[in-house]
């Protein structure tokens, strides 16, 4: 098995699906030339400009056109160049893609994938660093994936493309070239809505996703080595539908829960996880459900000094683990 980066896994998933199914097309800004992160490198050569093409710089149309094309038999992957620029398309995603099946009583469906690089830690400043997942995870009718793991990304992106409903697929851009993993060459599909227990442990349940799940794994290793604390790390992978069973089963075992996410703390996705645990596993808790997230300032300031000060990472996770273990 070859070791691959996240961006390679994403590219491979799309290319394999495009080979497998002629209905799959991909479009967005700069995709003909390979895309700013090179996710569609070589696609024009292999699939032609009919199946991989540049659009005008207009995010609402990118998603709106994808919706229309999906109603007429295609399986579009719409690329939003950075998640920070998805906001003009929110109307199309929430009012249209998420609702068309429900509002037509099942007559229409909207099998689109909206892909977007998200997340901080690349010195991208306040408009190339945002975490946008909580807005979409809030909406019934959508499916939301956040990945940093190459293995997960390939299998989940394939599932997203094959899924009959709209999927928002957020790829952590810091992980694109940083995170490497063994990724099978062959066709494998990971089901949406299934969390992964990435490390087993009996003392603390650490629920996370995206790049924070990568930090969590490293912090958990150190907690084991340095403090003898056994942390169970759950990478949610899919935020909606949420695999609440995996989360609750783990908390019932460990009695302690730490929820770590990169977005702003207030009203972030982790708040939902904390509420779920408090409601469904209260009797098993042996300490306060704890959140670790970015403080409530725009993510991210451009200056490294400022970004490093606000962005939670491995050290912060380790600290939070120790604090909760000591409770």
């Amino acid at each position: 098995m070859a070791v691959k980066t996240l961006i390679e896994a994403v590219r491979e998933a799309m290319a394999e699906e495009m080979r497998r199914d002629p209905r799959v097309i991909v479009f967005g800004e700069d995709v003909e030339e390979g895309g700013v992160f090179r996710a569609t490198e070589g696609f024009v050569q292999e699939f032609g400009r009919e199946r991989c093409f540049d659009t005008p710089l207009a995010e609402s149309a990118i998603v709106g056109v994808a919706i229309g094309a999906s109603l007429n038999g295609l399986l579009p992957i719409a690329e939003i160049q950075f998640a920070d620029f998805i906001w003009p398309a929110v109307d199309q995603i929430i009012n249209e893609a998420a609702r068309i099946r429900w509002r037509s009583n099942g007559a229409w469906g909207c099998p689109i994938v909206v892909r977007a690089p998200y997340g901080a830690g690349i010195r991208g400043g306040p408009y190339h660093s945002q975490s946008v997942e909580s807005v979409f995870a809030h909406v019934p009718g959508l499916k939301v994936v956040c990945v940093a793991s190459p293995y997960d990304a390939k299998g989940l992106l394939k599932a997203a493309i094959r899924d009959p409903d709209p999927v928002l697929f957020f790829e952590h851009k810091r992980a694109y070239r940083l995170v490497r993993e063994e990724v099978p060459e062959d066709d494998y599909v990971l089901p949406l809505g299934q969390a992964a227990v990435k490390r087993e442990g009996k003392d603390i349940t650490l629920v996370s996703y995206g790049m924070m799940a990568q930090h969590a794994l490293k912090a958990a290793e150190r907690a084991a080595e340095e403090d003898g604390i056994q942390v169970e790390v759950i990478d949610l992978r899919t935020l909606r539908p949420l695999d609440s069973e995996t989360v609750l089963a783990s908390v019932r075992k460990t009695g302690k829960a730490l929820v770590a996410y990169e977005d702003n703390l207030f009203g972030g996705y982790g708040a939902e996880i904390a509420a779920l645990i408090a409601e469904e596993a209260f009797d098993y808790l042996d300490g306060p459900v704890t959140r670790l997230a970015a403080p409530d300032v725009p993510i991210s300031p451009f200056s490294p000094a400022l970004e490093d000060a606000i962005l939670p990472g491995e050290e912060n996770v380790l600290e939070a683990i120790r604090r909760l273990a000591a409770y």
Binding site: E50, G64, I67, G68, N72, D91, N95, E96, R103
Partner: peptide
């Protein structure tokens, strides 16, 4: 006849997407 919503004009890009698919197919 394609299901629509209340927000004004959101249907216009859908029509373009449908036509795109007609052309590509």
């Amino acid at each position: 006849i394609v299901s629509g919503s209340a927000p004004v004009a959101t249907q216009v890009p859908h029509a373009v997407g449908i036509a795109l698919a007609s052309k590509l197919r």
